[in-house]
Structure formats: C-alpha cells, structure tokens
Design a protein around this nucleic acid. Structure first.
Length: 566
RNA sequence: UGCGGGGUAGAGCAGCCCGGUUAGCUCGUCAGGCUCAUAACCUGGAGGUCGUGGGUUCAAAUCCCACCCCCGCUUCCA
C-alpha cells in the first residue's frame, strides 16, 4: 500500500539528471553515467507512492554549439533543437521516463528564471566586476575560450600546444606564456583583448559548501573529492561570457552589452525552469513549482550527474544557490563514473566521438536490440568506485546468461508447468504442507526485498540489481530442490505449494526488476493480470497472489547472437 | 608537484569505513546430476603470495607508515 492509499502525505521528490549538451547524440556512456541510474531511482520512487518529478532537458547554450552551427551553416538554435529532438527520441527508446525533456533555448521560462537568478545574486553584492585579457579571433570577431587556442610553449618552444599546459615540458601556460597563439576554429592568429566580466568568488561560500557536504547524500568518493577541492581553496569564476548565443546578462551596465550568462551558470538553472515548464504544462501553479526549489518546502531534490559535473554541482551550484539566499540546497547528488570502452580485439579506450569509439544509443535501438539489455548491462557494470569498461560482447553474454537463462527461463519453466498441470490460476494450497525449504525460501524473498529496497534508497543501483539477481538464482535452486516435476506424480497438493511459492517469487521479481528493466518486468506482471503502473513496490511481499489469475507471459528475453542449428 | 580514486583467481567485481569462520560473487572453465524450462537449471572441482615492503595486534584484504603501478582533476564528450 502506498502513501496515497493510506491517506498520508506522500514523500515529494524532484529528481534531475544532468542536462546533455545539445550538439550531439547520446552514447551508452551518457546513459550509464546519469540517466539510467536516475530512471531506476525514479521508477522505484514512483512505485513507493512518492510524488516524483523527473526533470531534464538539453543544455543548449555555449561556444561549442555556436561553432557547430558555423560549421554546418545553421543557427545555434537549429543545431540545439535538432539534437534535442534526437536525444529525446533516444531517451524515450531506452525507457528513460522523464516527466519533461525540455531545452534551455526552447523552454519559455528559462531565460527569465536565469536572469532573475543572476539579478538576485547581483543585488546581494556577490558579483565582482573585473576586467581581464582574453584571446580573440579576429576572423570570427569573437572571443575564444582557452580550449580553442593553440600555440607555442613559451618555455620550451614546443609547437601546437593547448593554451593551458605544455605536453612536452609540463609547465602551465597562460595568455602571456603561450606564444604565437592561433584559433583552432578559424586557423587565424589569436589576438588579445580586454574584456569585462562578472565573477563569483566561490571562496565566500566555503562555509555553506562545507556544511552542505557534511549532511548531503553523496558517495564517499564524491565527498572526499570535494573536500580535497575545499582544502586547496576555492577561486573566483567568471559567470558571464562574450558570446552572441546565450542568455543576455540582465544588467543596465553598458559593460554588460553583448554579454551572456556563462553556460554553466544557466544550465543548472534549467532544472528549475524545466520544473516550472512541467508544472505549467500540467496546468499547475507556476509559483508553486518555483517554491519546490526554495527553502521551507519539503520536496527532496536529488541530482544525478556524471563525474565531470562534480565541481559544478557540488561546489558552484551550491554556492549559486547559497548566494541567492532563498534557495534550498539539494538533498543529494549522485555522481557516477564514466565508462571506458573495449571493442573486440582492441585495447581499452575512452568513449570518444571524434575517434569513433562510442556506441550510439540511436544505433543500438535502430538495430532492434533490447533496451532492457543495455539498461541491465550498464547498471551491472557501473562500479561506484572506479571507471569500468563497456564491452559489447560482454553485454550480449551477460544478457544471455543472467537475464535470459536465469530469470527468463525460471519464469518460463514455472508458468508453463503450472498452466499445464494446475490450470490458469496461481494455485491455492494447504498451509499445513509447508516445509522448511518453503519457509526459508519465503525468508529469502523477504530479506532480498529488504536488501534491494535499502540499496535503492542509498542510490546503490548496482548493488540493488545484484541483490535481485541473487534472489533469481535462489529461485532456481528452490525449484530444483523441490523438483515439482517429480513430486507431481505422487503429491499434487505438495506440488501446489512449490508452484505457488515460485509464482509468488516471480511476481516479486517482476516488481523488483521494474526499475531496472521495465519492459521485461511488465511482461512478468502481465502473467498475473497486473498492469505495471498500478503495482506498488511493497506488493513484492504483501500482495495476495494465491488463487489469482495466471497466464503464460511472452518470452522475456530473446537471446542475442545465438546461431540456430549449431 | 598537489588533490581524489583504484590495484582482490583467466575476465569483471564485492568485502575494507566498524580488524576475527575454510577471502565471497558473476562470467568463463572442468566433472557430475536433473529433464519442468529459452541447448536451460542444480551440485561439485580447479584456479588467489588480497600491488610491494615494513609496523600495530593473539589475529590484517580490512588499521598505520613508506614505496610502486594505473586512472581522473586539461580533452568532443555522462
């Protein structure tokens, strides 16, 4: 029974997943890094009866999209919208159940919310207006971020070095020590110009960040990493940029002319504006949507991000929210590691768009492959400790042996056996006939359910999935020990106990697997005439199943790469 | 340099925070069993100096120190 049914106030949770940058499609790394874990958590929460909002959208501003647009002869808005749509398709195909997938350039509320946010911090006096010297691309008439500038190391003379550090001598380079700077965008020499920007001095929020760090739900590694950052001291960061694509800096100051908000300033605010857009689309009060993000509201906010976003979410975003003063800090930030990738016969390498070492979600789906297989695999390899390796062959192998052979086959063998020998209902049985084996199997179900729940609450999705899979192995052991195919010849009543308990386990597997592999889980639940979206999490152990309807579910997992006749 | 993380059987991981049964699990592999089932399931075996060297302790994968190797903190990227 969920909270709504009990008449109590449901737990309110707002889950965000890091905004993907809309200058490309999604690959498996994106999914495993933030979106699948977030979706698992959200699906679980929904089943517990919590009032969940799952908010995401594309991050559309910034230099990279401008450059893509220049190269493709499009406007930045066109580029952003093109990829936003494709990303939305990929997410939908993978069963990532966002309540909204908007975009920072299309969301009608985003610009104002971002500007108000900036103004609020400005009014509090936290911005410092400072002049600095930046590389400038005369050909494009635009300032250049450091990563688009290369030049000669001023210390050792090595050519073609990135503007921040020389690969040869290891010395740090800056605007004065990089010689013969060149724009990698236009290929023309980069000049240097003075420009004014608004800086947020993060060191002023060390106390807030530190206190938040102590109480926030973060993985130990994340905490250690952020503590390390705090230990070395926080710095000032410019929150504005000289670009034509972005949200205008909302100040009357003439120096603010032609400047936009730093893309990383407006991106996380996208969580807020997307929440507002979601509520508006549902016909709800916009002000109430904003309040979810403010102090005094009991909505829990949890961010899911990839490891590269740690600094932004655990330091800068916390500082930004603290600076505004009326904003609530997130309850948790779930940081996931990247994956490396290894294709058959090759070395382990990074997932890279330019080097072609990526598995694209769109391609995977276009090949007709099972989204559940990818969801399962990504979850099962996602170590909370270190980067792990995505291997396409491994996905297939794990899917076949763990899902098809262990879970799928168990469901199939029990349902077909029951339907053949006991009719189309979950058998009713005499409780007097329960044996120790049955009782300990029942204990295993209860303790597995508790373990899975605990792991999910702790955002340990790999651990939760392992606990479910361990239970599925126990199911096979249980049936093997009870051997109903032998027992039915002499003891039909005792056989019914085994089948009823096995079916109860299958039903529970259907529930516990729902967050991870929703399509297959829905098939399992359909065998009992149940609709997946009407099933409560605690039904895994509480639902009165015995005597209920039973039908043969479709094959849950079609094995991959199996050559017939050999 | 600095900060953070990792180093456990052929592969991938858990355990480490809060030291203590024969160091677990998955996959692979070898040998049996079963036959209800998606050529699946079950049982058993082989396979590990828990990065290296010290230290603390009755006892260390687990705590402490030193060192070695790999990765991230810069990268189109989650």
């Amino acid at each position: 029974m969920n909270a709504a049914q009990k008449g109590t106030t449901p737990r309110k949770v707002l889950v965000t997943a890091g905004l993907p940058y809309s200058n490309g499609r999604l690959h498996v790394g994106h999914l495993g890094g933030a979106y699948i874990p977030a979706d698992i958590y959200v699906r679980y929460l929904r089943m517990t009866g919590a009032e969940v909002r799952f908010v995401c959208g594309s991050d559309d501003h910034g230099v990279a999209i401008m450059i893509t647009a220049e190269q493709e002869g499009k406007t930045p808005a066109e580029v952003a919208q093109h990829y936003q749509k494709l990303q939305a398709q990929d997410f939908a195909g993978m069963g990532v159940s966002f309540d909204i997938y908007s975009g920072t350039s299309t969301n009608p509320y985003h610009a104002k919310v971002s500007q108000d946010f900036f103004t609020a911090i400005h009014d509090k006096g936290y911005f410092e207006k400072q002049s600095s010297r930046q590389f400038y691309d005369e050909a494009r008439a635009a300032f250049l971020p450091d990563r688009y500038v290369k030049g000669t190391c001023g210390y050792c003379g090595t050519v073609e070095q990135n503007s921040d550090q020389c690969e040869n001598c290891g010395k740090m380079l800056d605007i004065d020590t990089l010689k013969n700077p060149k724009s990698t965008v236009s290929g023309q020499p980069a000049t240097i110009r003075e420009t004014v920007h608004w800086f947020l001095d993060l060191s002023r929020f060390e106390k807030e960040v530190t206190e938040w760090l102590d109480r926030a739900e973060l993985r130990d590694q994340t905490k250690a990493y952020v503590r390390g950052l705090l230990g070395t001291g926080l710095v000032k960061r410019a929150m504005t940029r000289d670009l034509t694509w972005g949200i205008p800096v909302p100040l009357d100051d003439p120096d603010a002319q032609g400047k936009v908000l730093y893309v990383w300033f407006d991106a996380p605010i996208g969580y807020i504006s997307n929440t507002i857009e979601l509520e508006a689309k549902r016909g709800h009060d916009v002000a109430a949507a904003e309040r979810m993000w403010q102090t005094g509201d009991d909505t829990e906010i949890v961010h899911f991000i990839g490891e590269d976003n740690t600094v932004f979410h655990c330091v800068i975003w916390i500082a930004m929210l603290s600076a505004v003063g009326t904003m609530k800090l997130p309850k948790g930030v779930v940081v996931n590691h990247y994956f490396n990738i290894q294709f058959p016969g090759k070395e382990v390498e990074k997932i890279s768009k330019s080097r072609g070492t990526a598995v694209w979600v769109g391609d995977y789906l276009a090949e007709g492959k099972d989204p559940d297989a990818l969801r399962y695999y990504l979850t099962s390899i996602a170590s909370e400790k270190a980067r792990t390796v995505y291997k396409p062959e491994d996905l297939e192998q794990r899917f076949n042996s763990e899902l098809a052979d262990s879970v799928g086959n168990f469901v199939n063998r029990i349902t077909s056996f029951t339907l053949k020998h006991c009719g189309s209902n979950v058998p009713l049985f005499d409780k007097q006939l329960l044996t120790d084996t049955d009782r300990s199997f029942d204990d295993a179900l209860n303790s597995s359910f508790e373990a899975v729940t605990k792991e999910l609450e702790a955002h340990s999705f790999k651990g939760a999935l392992e606990a479910v899979m361990e239970f599925s192995r126990q199911c096979n052991r249980y049936v093997d020990e009870k051997a109903p195919w032998t027992m039915r010849k002499t003891d039909m009543e005792g056989t019914k106990v085994t089948l009823a308990y096995s079916l109860r386990a299958i039903h529970a597997l259907g529930i516990m697997l729902s967050p991870f592999i929703p399509t297959a889980a829905a098939k399992i639940l359909s065998a009992f005439g149940r609709e997946a979206d009407k099933v409560a999490w605690t039904d895994a152990v509480n639902f009165e199943l015995f005597g209920g309807p039973l039908s043969q579910p479709p094959i849950l997992f079609q094995k991959m790469g199996v050559v017939k006749g050999q």
